[in-house]
Amino acid sequence: MSTLGTAIDSLTAAMKCNILPNQEYLLQGSVLDQYVEVLLHRLRGLCDNVDSGPETFNDHELCYSLRINSANAPCILPLRVRRALDVTDAPFQLRYVGQPELGDKNRPTVVRSSIDMACSSTILEFLNELGCRLDFEYISRGYMFRKGRMKVTVSKIFKMNGMSNKPSEGVEAISQSYLVELSVQAPLGQDAIAEDMRIFAEQLRPLVQLEKIDYKRLGNMMS
């Protein structure tokens, strides 16, 4: 118990010192399948990992939600687990992302709180025991680039046809486009990075329109 205590202590201390990268600055867009090569080519030119080429990934993401039934305000806690299908010894990733905040017009990116941690494969069992429910899952395959602190992912999203035990079989792409995301994880209050992201996103136009996506409006629009 004492070890747990110190772990929480050091976590609290880290949060107080504001060194935890708990904010995610995010811009999203998409590119049609036939132009993805052009985009990858441009990203290869713009980003840091030129020599090694783009990093590929093939991940399975499971999105859980935990309902907390407190008396006055029932709330839903979304939790995401991501695991690499191509690198079998990589740890699982547990992730919490909060509500995206759009801010006003002067803010170049969406900001949402975000906490990442590495964990073992028992996390799935643990979440089930905790009462979390699996909401949806998908496969994300694509390329990752880096530019300073910025991360760019170009990924194809696949729907799983109910075969959770064999995640790479029977999958089906959900659209004719690749999802493009530009994100930075940073501690609270480092808003300057958002401006860098805006400038970077500007360089990808008109190939990709990286934008602040309003989730609330999107929810109304799609339903």
Binding site: L32, S177, L179, L207, V208, Q209, I213, M222
Partner: peptide, 17 residues
């Protein structure tokens, strides 16, 4: 080169399932 409808589709899928 890109489609707004596809962007919305993808973001809604990844973000909200």
């Amino acid at each position: 080169n890109s489609s707004v409808a596809d962007t919305h589709l993808l973001v809604a899928a990844v973000g909200m399932g």
